[in-house]
Amino acid sequence: MAKVHVSMTVNGDAVEGLVEPRTLLIHFIRENLLLTGAHIGCDTSHCGACTVDLDGKSVKSCTLFAVQAEGASITTIEGMAAPDGTLHALQEGFRMMHGLQCGFCTPGMILRAHRLLLENPDPSEEEIRFGIAGNMCRCTGYQNIVKAIQYAAAKINGVPFQEAAE
């Protein structure tokens, strides 16, 4: 079946490629663009490891065809740090608060948390948990992921981070 030309912006760069219509966005990102930060966890739209930011929405890139992203602007974990390597506040938060163990869920968690904080810069713990409910972590028990996001929110808002008492 004829391949289709797709073009989009990924982490600020214009990219294009020829894909079969059935090519999933996650495969285009990982195999054509060789950006392997977004992971395939479940492949069944449940785990969120494949989450990227697409035109202001957090999306599961295993459940979109690359052709649906024609013309879109996408951010993956590779686009989060500054060009000089300075970590994004969320990356710093995950590092400082031990928000990861194996790290498999982390790119998806960070991209989802990124959109959450843009929409709600000062979320409550409950709002954070509800906001990342589409992302599974099999290691941390989420406690430190929530702290990492609270750390990032404080840093972005320019206020001191206060770790809640356990």
């Binding site: 739209s45 969120g48 989450t51 929405k57 957090s58 999306v59 599961k60 459940t63 979109l64 989802r112 959450l116 906001g131 990342i132 409910a133 589409g134």
Partner: peptide, 9 residues
């Protein structure tokens, strides 16, 4: 319904 990512799409 579902989770934030699903509801965006």
């Amino acid at each position: 319904i579902a989770d934030p990512q699903v509801r965006y799409v």
